[in-house]
Design a protein around this nucleic acid. Sequence first.
RNA 1: GGCCUGGUAGCUCAGUUGGUUAGAGCGCCGCCUUGUCACGGCGGAGGUCGUGGGUUCAAGUCCCAUCCAGGUCGCCA
Length: 598
Amino acid sequence: MKRTHTCGDLRAAHVDQTVTLCGWVHNRRDHGGIIFLDLRDRYGLTQVTLDPDICGKEVHELGNRVRSEWVLQITGKVTSRGDKKNPNLATGEIEVFVKDLVVLNKAETPPFEIAEHIKVGEEPRLKSRYLDLRRPTMQHNLITRHRVTKVVRDYFDEHRFLEIETPTLCKYTPGGARNFLVPSRLHQGSFYALAESPQLFKQLLMVGGYDRYLQIARCYRDEDLRNDRQPEFTQIDVEMSFIDMDDIMDIGEGMARAVWKTILGVDLPAKFRRMTWAEGMLKYGSDKPDLRYGMEIVDLTDWAPTSGFSVFQKAVEAGGVVRALNAKKATEILSRRTLDTLTEFAKGYGAKGLAWIKIGGDPSKAESWQGPAAKNITEAARIELAKRMNVEDGDVLFFGADSFKVVCATLGAVRVELGTKLLKLARGDDWQFLWIHSAPAFEWSDESQALVANHHPFTAPYDDHVDLLASDPAKVLSKSYDMVLNGNEIGGGSIRIHDSATQSKVFKALGISDEDAQKKFGFLLHALSFGAPPHGGMAFGLDRMIMLICQSDSIRDVIAFPKTQRGRDEMLDCPTVVSDRQLKELALVTAAPVVAKA
RNA sequence: GGCCUGGUAGCUCAGUUGGUUAGAGCGCCGCCUUGUCACGGCGGAGGUCGUGGGUUCAAGUCCCAUCCAGGUCGCCA
């Protein structure tokens, strides 16, 4: 070993020991005679001191030439700092007086300083990710990620789950996320698809008798990127046989409790709150409600026709809904200018506008109700509204009047914008978990002009909804459940269909012919016909979970080497064009304008 | 694919109504400095203002196009 201790180890108890440390030069304070170096590794920072009277002239001169981020090996005596302690440093009680110094490697001046207090943009960070990874926040995040996956593996191991790997090179299946395609050299003109999730494999494992499966699985989706979406990401993938919805939710909750307890020391509730999809949409305009603040949405569709306001009346006549939320004590923060911005924000979600009413004074007086919508509402309607919305002085009401879909999207987004950004009602360390369950099995797709599976076509409908598959499929609710944390979907799953009769009814509802189903999913249908056990499971977004635990704004901060929003790796400079020879070997031609020469 | 924000020194940013030689802090380089710890003092170097075109006597600043980064809608069963 080149070192006896790390840069985070030494304490007062080590005084008088001779130690050897290795690390990077974090900082250098040259006093002409005495030189202080802060030596850094991932365990911490230790002050090493070069006193010419102790280390000799030669080592001292070498210390003079040392620069930031050089890699040093130093040997010296641990010495108490006496009254010169540094309380900001874990090793601040001591310093090491250098006797010998070896430069293990020099370093160019880094493009940015490796220090917590230095602000650096993401572009330079990603270009020199190996330097960014030296920074304390990134080290903390990646260490946390390691610890979380260890807790997860231990937890599932204790519950008799088996970790089984499944292929990432697999078959293209239509529907769902766009796949990355991998050309086959041995079967020219044919392609593998990178797995968007191990979904079908884990169901086949259930058929194979591995009744409790776990995998920390890499998944690939060729879709547009976001702060919480990368083209490759990691799922904690789980599947179980001989269980019901409650069993899976219990297992999932248990995992979250274990992680939060071990990593953060936080005790999550013994039972997570549960809410139907319908309730989430009604009260929060979202299938992933943020429960860190109130502002529940109130349905006013029955009130709207007698409100006297034609905008509301027409929305209901057109078959839409009218709903509102109350931002308590918000009149001061929500200036006219902010409300205009919020109206534009709402239009981004398909709303034609955002009616609002400010309450400036005693709500029983008409003149206290301010804003364009206020004048149009009759006195009786106003009194009724005050009651339903629990209106008080200082409140601001926001209305949505449109189709169900648009009103949910708009008020849901306005609520989050108010809660997290404008009124700042949400804390990053307030952990509001809940389950959203029983979503509709299908939803209408404007793009394909047909019903499409909300989750996936193997999601089991409620037993008493099976008959609706033929008569009114849009009303069918599924045995599905999403784990939601602070407005983020961090996991989701369902009970799967395990009998072929129900499966074919679902395909029929989706407009998929038996022949088509055989072609696309034949291997699964065949497997289900050989005694598939009742089963179900779920998958957690590991990156998102860790992002929330680390209170980061982006999963890029919890991934060692992430891609940019256009899917590029700034450090590798990829993707790249390939040579004609490579294309030829794969029997590919490209329509792209530039191809690299061999 | 749409919309929004940004791109000026190695880093983080300022740059007014278009007007002389484009600034600051940090970092970097040199000298001084024996108790600092985001040490201190003095001095210095460092710029294709993302790229291309246009308007103008004159463009970092205005216009058009384009690239890159971030956010967002669509998309992500």
